[in-house]
């Protein structure tokens, strides 16, 4: 299958490959997909806890060129957005930007899932942090 120029560019020069500390409360981690299905994406966001703005995003992906490109593009789209704005990102935006063919749409769906999972993880950690602070306050 022929890949679009944008997919090839992201594959050859992936943006934001790497990892953030998953134990950091300001970091949300999303891990989606399965090795048996041929694609796994790990997408992480670092959020400013005051403003709710995503300051950094990193990914690692096991998958085809379109899966790598979808997650690479996702990290680019995430930076600078608030988590509310990020939650509104749709896979169709990725399909359009990368000119993904129909057989590769599932790659963009996976990227959207990864974004949602990372936001979810961040929110869960924040809630746990608040609960802990509350508990400390009550006990004091």
């Amino acid at each position: 299958m022929a890949y679009s120029a944008k997919v090839i560019d992201h594959y050859n020069n992936p943006r934001n490959v790497g990892s953030l500390d998953p134990k950091d409360d300001s970091v949300g981690t999303g891990l989606v997909g399965a090795p048996e299905c041929g694609d796994v994406m790990k997408l992480q966001i670092k959020v400013n806890e005051e403003t709710g703005v995503i300051e950094d995003a990193k990914f690692k992906t096991f998958g085809c060129g379109s899966a790598i490109a979808s997650s690479s593009l996702a990290t680019e789209m995430l930076k600078g957005k608030t988590i509310e704005e990020a939650a509104a990102i749709k896979n169709t935006a990725i399909v359009q930007e990368l000119n993904l063919p129909p057989v590769k749409i599932h790659c963009s769906v996976l990227a959207e899932d990864a974004i949602k999972a990372a936001i979810e993880d961040f929110k869960k950690k924040q809630a746990a942090k608040r609960a802990k602070a509350q508990e400390a306050l009550t006990n004091a």
Binding site: Y11, G63, G65
Partner: peptide, 11 residues
């Protein structure tokens, strides 16, 4: 192990 075949073909 740890790399997907189609992604590898592209490389």
């Amino acid at each position: 192990a740890y790399v997907e075949g189609e992604g590898l073909l592209m490389g």
